[in-house]
Amino acid sequence: MQVTSNTTSLIPLIFILIGIPGLEEDGLWLSIPFVLVYTMAILGNCTLLYIIKTDRNLHEPMYFFLSLLAANDLVFPSSTVPNMLKIFWFDFREVSFTGCLVQMFFVHSLSVVESGILLAMALDRYVAICYPLRYTSLLTSALLQKIGLVIIIRAIVTILPIPILVRRLQYCKYNIISHSYCEHMAVVKVACGDVSLNSMYGLVLSLSITGFDLLFIGLSYMMILRAVFRLPSEQARHKAFSTCGAHVCVILVTYTPGIFSFVTYRFGQENVPHHVHVLLANVYILFPAMLNPMVYGIKTKQIRRRALDIFHKGGIHFCT
């Protein structure tokens, strides 16, 4: 479907989402793993939130940040998967221009929120290991709420210019997006005229947010390692390492597909098929949301025991 006009400043009424380019005929089969992963993500994060909410022993700073991560992992895939399933199941590919901008804002802002939460969790582990006796006095409820608010405000302030910049572009050729959701650069590619500002802002934002967060996460763990190796006993060092194990795993699960997707999109488009890039973009959103509660369920003894108790009794009401 094409949109034509005598003017080059036309804002299209709708966009057409391709889905997974080159695999349009396999939508029904592609939907199966997406549905399974999405369902596991919803169940896992709802279970995690239920456990943290109902177990008073888990009302600590570490689990406050973990509950934020679980809540974000509920909303993040929900911003793309339902629309994607409409493409796979009903061949419903149309999205309004405004709806596309709204989805774009939520997808990218939730990604920034996810990164901010991981940074806050690194700070939490640093305080817990380097200042164990002052842990609860330093990370008070008021401070935790302020950190959570800063994470959200940072995401809004940094991502809000993206849909504004996209709206100012000219769309004079066509309105077909070769993606499964309204990803920023995928939408920019269908515009005509000068898109260098959008491209530059997206690049600088990705490098600065990811670079800043990874830098401070790295610095936190350098200081954590220095403190751990000063502990007098091997048992104490093992306990300290075990408290960081789940967070390190979650960092790897979250950042690895995201960085790989970014690198292939910016620098490897000639060597990586486009459908592979789109699949990687979806893996970045879906798989961390599914794996994060599993990692904490396996690595964190309190959560693991509570989860086993709940499932043995069969008494759980998800997301309540």
Rank of each mutant, 00 (worst) to 15 (best):
K86M: 12
Y201K: 07
E60V: 10
G268R: 02
C192Y: 13
W89T: 12
I310S: 05
T80M: 10
G148V: 01
H317S: 12
S111G: 15
K53T: 03
L48T: 10
F229S: 01
L231S: 06
F34H: 13
L219R: 02
T158H: 12
L58A: 03
A236K: 05
N198I: 15
V113I: 13
T98I: 14
S261H: 09
F76C: 02
A186S: 15
I217K: 01
R266M: 13
T254E: 03
R134C: 00
M121Y: 09
I162C: 12
V276E: 06
C130Q: 06
P21C: 11
Y171R: 14
F90P: 01
T54L: 10
G315H: 14
I129R: 09
P77G: 03
F15M: 12
V250F: 08
E25H: 14
C319R: 04
I87M: 04
F311M: 13
V248L: 14
A70K: 03
A128P: 03
M290Y: 04
V35E: 03
L149W: 07
T264Q: 00
Y201G: 11
N83S: 12
L74I: 13
L10H: 07
H238D: 10
G193I: 13
V107M: 04
S9M: 08
H238K: 13
S5W: 07
D309Q: 14
G99E: 10
A41T: 03
F97E: 05
G315V: 06
V283W: 08
R226W: 03
I51E: 06
I176Y: 13
T300R: 05
N57K: 13
K239G: 03
Y174E: 15
N175I: 08
L23D: 09
C100S: 15
K146E: 00
S96Q: 04
L203H: 04
T98V: 11
N271P: 00
